[in-house]
Nucleic acid binder design. Structure first.
Ligand SMILES: Nc1ncnc2c1ncn2[C@@H]1O[C@H](COP(=O)(O)OP(=O)(O)OP(=O)(O)O)[C@@H](O)[C@H]1O
Length: 758
DNA sequence: CATGTGACCCCT
DNA sequence: AGGGGTCAC
């Protein structure tokens, strides 16, 4: 059975929030189609919120009021008030705070994700109830009046009959299924929470109830508005089989496009066909792991307690002709923005007893028709708007005199206001809790979260970094978002804990040094190949079971599990061996050997070992010794895709990766020769050739490259494609050498990265 | 021509 | 720590 860890995470998302706020102010407009716009002068303004009545007419966000009126003539447009020439959204912020107040009364772990949504980790609450309410499920069931169960009623449809039927079916296993028990308890809790929000604020909301943030977010959207949805693990395979990749949180942007393009997949379940190492090779360790996990419904990102924002800012666009060229205009707008920020800072000082210490001014300007964005920071020493305005003016004019199309002032790095109760309390309470001590430099960031800490009695929040680590004590070192080393280590541990083929390989490699593992690789080729084949088969046939090897850690890494603590400390100590681990990870189930795997340190190459290598690899070593720099043209897809994706790929690691890839190419024939003995082929659905099974991914790369090429040639209107075309013209190796598939694709997409890097 | 706000990540 | 960029609401 799939193990999704033990968390229960929910998302509360207010329905068409700004519209509800406006409707509460003018109850007589309730029930009528409504949209909230800002700046109604030009084309009746830009729509930023649409109520459900208006959505039925096809009105959407980003439309102009004018356009929306065409779709829905009786549409009511309410404008965001204007203050100092800007849209003033303060009333929505304060309405959002009302909601948070209700949440605070009911849960200690709340992450305010935006003005209208918050994630709550209710694991403890649910498990306490589970322990206490074993015989009280009748009550629980009776409370699930607005709850949908994914897989038991059609998504996107709020039909009551279907809902209650589906719920009933799902509840039929209540007595034997702990997951159903926990989720139904969570469902009842959320029903009450939503009821309390409504009774207190008058606002309706939807909720998603599942095991992590991504699933909760997904679930929440399935039965909006004013309903809640439970997403259990058994519903995931079916849900993901039609779920477009871009619908998943964090895959909605460029990364999502790249995943779709480069892997030629559309829905989440398509990602199941790729092994962890393949994904990590294609992207980078972190992204690969994320994708691998999320395809299986796994997301270890913790709910990070935070109730107040970390920055307060105001910005404004000056598009086209409105761009600021005149110094006085610049001064004017900077003082308007400063005034707004100061007003909100003063309010924040009262409410949260803290002061911002950093001032950042951002600006976009035009240079050679392209827009350049920059920002400059300085210490924030005064809440006087004139002072702030002046500081910003100096920073901007020092940086550019070009026409400015965007201006923003933001303040951050909050520190506790001196003399505030919390300031004193913090040091008092800090003495009694067992947080790691904080240095002076940490204090400013510590204070940022002080209120949270004091009011919630959770672990000290410290700096953001510490905060995450602290939280991680609850789920020790799962996918700690901030520390890539830990993360990649944790994979290894996860995998060691399983009996999956990949873990066997991993284990065998880990236990030895690399020189040895290389020879082991050669000697045990056949076994590895069989294992790899099994691994592929497993992935395909038991898509949702194989990931047990990952989720095990969720359970195992819980705080009171001693083994876990041991594991996590092992993780940390292994950081120093990270590089080796990486090499081993690349080396194993790809079964191709890179020089880097044999000689992790190129400065320490043993000539005796070189002599033992096949001639290709010997040449490779020679080449590498000649060239210390990475050849740009050999950069892998990892780098190619996007700088952002390739966060980790720098210095040695990056070098290692590209060299790995190169080695893969050069050792292609060696490995193929070995493979031929195995006679394990798979027919390529695209070209119908028989491909050695463990070269299948690489072969697929070739098709991807070819497809892109085709697409480029066909479609020259698309901006992105046009850029790619330029790129391709520069490196048109594709037709030259069939066996250079990866090199070719890679060199092409590498240049593609410069596009995304803009 | 045309939104505004905030969090987080990576690189340097 | 500063600065550029992505993602999302
Ligand atoms: N691109 C945007 N620009 C400005 N404000 C936005 C933008 N996206 C969302 N918002 C504001 O944040 C609020 C919450 O957005 P969200 O995406 O949750 O949709 P919603 O309007 O609340 O509708 P629902 O959640 O019911 O689909 C909105 O009411 C909206 O005004």
């Amino acid at each position: 059975m799939t193990n999704f860890g033990n968390r229960i995470v929910i998302l509360i998302d207010m329905d068409c929030f700004y519209c509800q706020v406006e409707t509460r102010l003018q109850p007589d407009i309730a029930g009528k189609p409504l949209a909230v716009v800002q700046y109604n002068q030009w084309k009746l303004g830009g729509i930023i919120a649409v109520n459900y009545e208006a959505r039925d007419f096809g009105v959407t966000r980003h439309m102009r009021g004018e356009e929306a009126k065409l779709k829905c003539p009786e549409l009511l447009l309410v404008s965001v008030p204007c203050l100092r020439g800007k849209a003033d959204t303060s009333k929505y912020r304060s309405a959002g705070r009302e909601v948070i107040e209700v949440l605070k009364k009911n849960c200690n772990i709340i992450e305010r994700a935006s003005v209208d949504e918050a994630y709550l980790d209710i694991t403890q609450i649910v498990d306490d109830k589970l322990a206490n309410k074993l015989n009280d499920y009748e009550d629980v069931i009776l409370q699930l009046k607005n709850t949908f169960i994914v897989g038991h009623s059609e998504s996107g449809v709020n039909n009551e009959e279907e809902r209650s039927k589906g719920l009933e079916t799902w509840l039929s296993t209540l007595s034997i299924d702990t997951q159903v028990q926990r989720l139904s308890i969570a469902g009842a809790f959320v029903e009450n929470l939503r009821k309390e929000i409504y009774e207190t604020t008058g606002f309706k909301c939807s909720a998603g109830i599942s095991f992590n943030k991504i699933l909760a977010k997904l679930a929440c959207g399935l039965h909006k508005p004013n309903r809640q949805t439970i997403l259990s693990s058994s519903a995931i395979p079916h849900l993901f089989s039609t779920l477009p990749i871009k619908k998943v949180r964090n895959l909605g942007g460029k990364l999502g496009d790249i995943v779709i393009d480069s892997l030629q997949c559309n829905v989440m379940s398509d990602l199941l066909h790729y092994s962890l190492s393949y994904l990590q090779n294609h992207f980078d360790e972190k992204t690969g792991l994320r994708l691998y996990n999320i395809a299986r419904g796994i997301d270890n990102e913790p709910v990070t307690p935070r109730l107040v924002s970390k920055s307060i800012g105001a910005c404004k666009n000056f598009p086209g002709k409105l761009a600021i060229v005149d110094k006085d205009f610049l001064k004017h707008w900077l003082s308007e923005l400063s005034a707004e920020v100061c007003e909100r800072l003063e309010q924040d000082l009262e409410e949260n007893e803290r002061k911002a210490s950093l001032l950042t001014v951002s600006f976009h300007y035009y240079q050679n028709k392209t827009s350049v964005s920059q920002s400059r920071s300085c210490p924030l020493t005064s809440y006087k708007p004139e002072k702030i305005s002046e500081q910003c003016f100096n920073l901007v004019t020092k940086a550019t005199h070009q026409p400015i199309s965007f201006l923003g002032i933001s303040t951050s790095k909050f520190i506790k206001a001196k003399g505030s109760e919390n300031f004193i309390n913090f040091f008092k309470s800090n003495a009694t809790d067992n947080c790691t001590s904080i240095s002076n430099t940490d204090i400013s960031e510590v204070n940022d979260n002080l209120k949270t800490k004091n009011s919630m009695n959770v672990n000290c929040n410290k700096t953001e970094r510490n905060e995450k680590h602290k939280i991680s004590n609850d789920y020790i070192i799962n996918e700690t978002t901030k520390n890539k080393n830990l993360e990649s280590s944790s994979v290894e541990i996860k995998q060691n804990k399983t009996s999956s083929p990949c873990s066997i390989i991993q284990h065998s490699l880990k236990s030895d040094n690399f020189k040895k593992s290389f020879f082991m690789n050669i000697l045990t080729q056949e076994k590895l190949k069989t294992d790899h084949l099994n691994s592929i088969t497993n992935t395909r046939e038991h898509d949702f079971e194989i990931h047990d090897c990952n989720t095990t850690s969720n359970e195992d890494l819980r705080p009171n599990n001693n083994d876990n603590i041991k594991n996590s400390s092992e993780n940390i100590t292994k950081k120093s061996d990270k590089k080796k681990q990486k090499s081993s990870m690349y080396g194993n189930d790809e079964t191709t050997i890179g020089i880097e795997e044999i000689f992790p340190d190129l400065n320490d190459i043993d000539i005796n070992i070189v002599r033992l290598l096949p001639s290709h690899l010997q040449q490779e070593v020679k080449k590498l010794l000649k060239t210390t720099e990475v050849h740009e043209k050999n950069v892998t897809l990892n780098k190619a895709i996007d700088k952002k994706i390739n966060k980790n790929s720098k210095g040695k690691l990056f070098k290692s990766k590209s060299q790995n890839k190169k080695s893969n190419i050069e050792t292609f024939f060696i490995n193929t020769a070995v493979n031929n003995d195995l006679k394990e082929f798979k027919k390529c659905p695209q070209c119908h050739q028989l491909i050695v099974i463990n070269k299948f991914d690489e072969h697929n790369d070739y098709h991807i490259a070819a497809t892109l090429q085709k697409e480029i040639n066909q479609n020259s209107d698309n901006v992105e494609t046009r850029k790619r075309k330029v790129i391709t013209n520069n490196s048109n190796h594709l037709k030259k050498r069939v066996n250079d598939q990866i090199v070719t694709y890679v060199s092409k997409t590498k240049s593609g990265s410069s596009f995304f890097q803009q």
